[in-house]
Write a protein that binds this DNA or RNA. Structure first.
Lengths: 139, 139
DNA sequence: TCAACAGTTTAGAACTATTATAATGTAGAA
DNA sequence: TTCTACATTATAATAGTTCTAAACTGTTGA
């Protein structure tokens, strides 16, 4: 077993019990150098590749939602038959390649600050997300 | 029967046969003064309110997809268990009120042009959509 | 240390939105 | 009118997600 104390701390500090399933999912999600996008289906595959102990599908769903609520994951707003999540929780945007059905990060520095010159009374802005749809350039 | 020649023309000109189901759906979608957002479920309800002749659910799905492909409707990228469509096909953006689960248009004029300073080689930009999530301001 | 309890996991059922199927119907052309 | 390709329909099938309720486990406090 590697050093998972960081994940145990992370979980405990946000009121989530550090169960072995949650720690394993943390490893799969947060151990990699680069952040990435995933669907539940893809996450389940990554998990089975990295462990022999099966984690129930329901637990994967529960955990992803818990992590999303705690701000450890972001859900990407996109029209798809599946939900897409992002381990990159910093402020950034996305290209969606409609030809390849592929999501690509756009660094926040590559997008001029989006100015919204209107407000809804009594509401505060929680996030501003830009989705840039692209397709093959056949010109 | 009201004057539906505009819809018959519209359908015919885009290679869709003007069936009575499609004409009825055009009426429900495009007769109102204001544009609006809807889910398939909501559209089915609107249809049943405005006619006695039942339109099959499959036809509603087929028609909405056909209209979307022809550019008469836009699908709104949002995380939801249902697809949201918009009869406003002009370039504009959305607030999503997470408290009320409500979508609100943002006029294009109220958003400073979004500048994306990066590109994907071989791909061209098809659309740039901004989703502003808001919640109740409890301050 | 250990009992107790609240939180967690689990397999599988249930649910819901959407798509596929295949038979019947219909608009438009000849 | 007849023919044919396109549309509609009810229903079945599919797929992602959530629910259920029983078994399990981390944590607390005696």
């Amino acid at each position: 077993m590697l050093d998972n104390s960081q994940y145990i701390e992370k979980l405990r500090s946000s009121g989530l019990r550090p169960t072995k399933q949650r720690i394993k999912i943390c490893e799969v999600l947060f151990n990699s150098e680069k952040t990435f996008h995933f669907t539940i289906n893809e996450l389940v595959k990554r998990i089975s590749k990295s462990t022999n102990e099966k984690i129930s599908l329901a637990t994967v769903y529960n955990t992803v939602h818990a992590f999303k609520n705690k701000g450890y994951l972001k859900e990407i707003p996109i029209n798809s038959d599946q939900s897409y999540f992002d381990t990159n929780t910093s402020h950034h945007h996305h290209f969606y390649d409609e030809t390849q059905k592929d999501l690509i990060d756009i660094d926040d520095a590559d997008v001029e600050p989006v100015k919204i010159n209107t407000r809804i009374p009594g509401k505060k802005i929680k996030s501003v997300e830009v989705l840039v749809k692209v397709e093959d350039d056949k010109s």
